[in-house]
Design a protein around this nucleic acid. Structure first.
Lengths: 256, 256
DNA sequence: GCGCCATAGATTGGCGCCAATTTAATGTCT
DNA sequence: AGACATTAAATTGGCGCCAATCTATGGCGC
């Protein structure tokens, strides 16, 4: 509340040192271990949509204080990765069916443009990075579901990186995460997120600088993903315990 | 403040109350008056890139507590509208030259897709909304710089709304804000942000359902905006007072 | 027995205080 | 007189406490 301002100029027009910051370490909030942890847990589907993210639980889990957790959750809430409800807490975001479709539509637009730019800008280091990733995906352990999910996401991120546009890259990252949530919410049990052959095909087309082909393959790939999800008929079915015990209860009643 | 929820089925199996939230009022953090205030101040260029956003100042300005301001700044920091530097505070985000170009490139991609979808989905209410906005832009007071800036931004938001994709709409909103920051950072003094005839042209083409024409006009419009900005040669020149008083000081010294 | 109401427990939200760091100002030395 | 080091003020960051709200369990009336 004190507004006493010590006098400013005493001798000259002194030049007010540096009032504005520039060229500062652009380390974002995303580097926070709590944020990273929740993000990878979601992209690996170890955290399901609707899961409660209690502040105390997370604080003890990550070994930090509640305030730190609060900041991380607020950040994730701004990015629509978690849903924050006043006085009730934070939950892993569960997109609606319309929102899920919108996410795929947005990916179609952005990733088609990204793959086109990637073909245009492809250089030696880009080729090397792409080949390295394709090698990884070819040799990876298909039994490790978590590593699998991370790798398939990384391919799309890599294409966005090759496009050479930071803004587009950030949008792709966000869309990848929200796609994970959409798929986790509306997937049919047992189906993989990506068809296993799609990424090598797209990668080969990019390496061959076949722009039209790469665009077509990418669009087809995304449409294929989109066709794997189905709307949930009953919104209350999402309640795990109810869904699980509903038929069991019915069966036991029938048996008795 | 009471949110009594009328239960759905009350007779059948137990139904463990409600563990997971759904269909909750999706009122976002963006409705916060502090966030809205800073956002409109930025889009109207009353807050320039690099401006310090002190917590105490904002708290007394908005008549709230510092914690509330903190949350708002954290949210804006997550959206890259303000830049937060540890132990130094929050500043209005100032994009780099490369980032500014990336923003325009992203807008080219997204808004071209949005205008195409808008033509496809155009219906009666969409036509009415578009006509109403064009009327507003035609009759608005051109001397009111702040209203002008708000209106020109609203046109692009309206096109994104007509596209019928919430995800794309949110991205367009974010890109509009960041465009404001890019233009404010790199504009040549005295030039308007938008050429005055561009919006009526695009609107007419949408109303005529001329998809190819609308796409071309929108792309041209964005490229025209992009060509109005120029990189700043000296990074330190951004310090306003220094820049202003540098030549004055030199002249007075020469005169004396 | 079923549904409604009340109390207890748990969780989130907010405020104040104090420590840590940065920034501005003053004094001193060359 | 200019520049560096020291000191003082201001601002941000973090932690603990307490109030407000919501969830869950038990009791009561119909």
């Amino acid at each position: 509340m004190k507004r006493s301002r010590p006098l400013k100029r005493k001798t000259k027009p002194v030049e007010p040192k540096r009032v504005e910051p520039d060229a500062v370490d652009p380390r974002s909030v995303d580097d926070d271990p709590v944020v990273q942890g929740i993000l990878t847990a979601i992209s690996q589907k170890r955290l399901k949509p609707g899961a409660k993210l209690g502040e105390d639980k997370l604080a003890s889990a990550f070994g930090t204080t509640r305030i730190h957790i609060r900041q991380a959750l607020a950040h994730l809430g701004s990015r629509k990765v978690v849903m924050q409800i006043p006085n009730r807490g934070a939950f892993v975001y569960r997109p609606s069916w319309e929102e899920a479709q919108d996410i795929f539509a947005a990916r179609r637009i952005i990733e088609v443009a990204a793959v086109a730019a990637a073909v245009d800008r492809l250089d030696k280091s880009g080729k090397a990075a792409l080949k390295a990733h394709m090698e990884l995906e070819a040799r990876h352990d298909r039994n490790d579901r978590w590593a699998s999910l991370s790798l398939t996401a990384e391919f799309h991120i890599l294409v966005a990186k090759l496009a050479g546009n930071r803004v587009l890259l950030d949008m792709s990252r966000e869309l990848m995460l929200r796609t994970s949530l959409a798929i986790a919410t509306f997937e049919q049990p047992g189906e993989p997120d990506c068809s296993p052959d799609a990424h090598p095909d797209i990668g080969a087309l990019i390496l061959a600088r076949d722009k039209a082909g790469a665009i077509h393959a990418m669009r087809h790939h995304i449409e294929e993903m989109e066709q794997r999800i189905r709307p949930k008929q009953d919104a209350d079915e999402v309640d795990e315990l109810t869904a699980i015990f509903k038929e069991i209860g019915a069966r036991s009643r029938a048996g008795a």
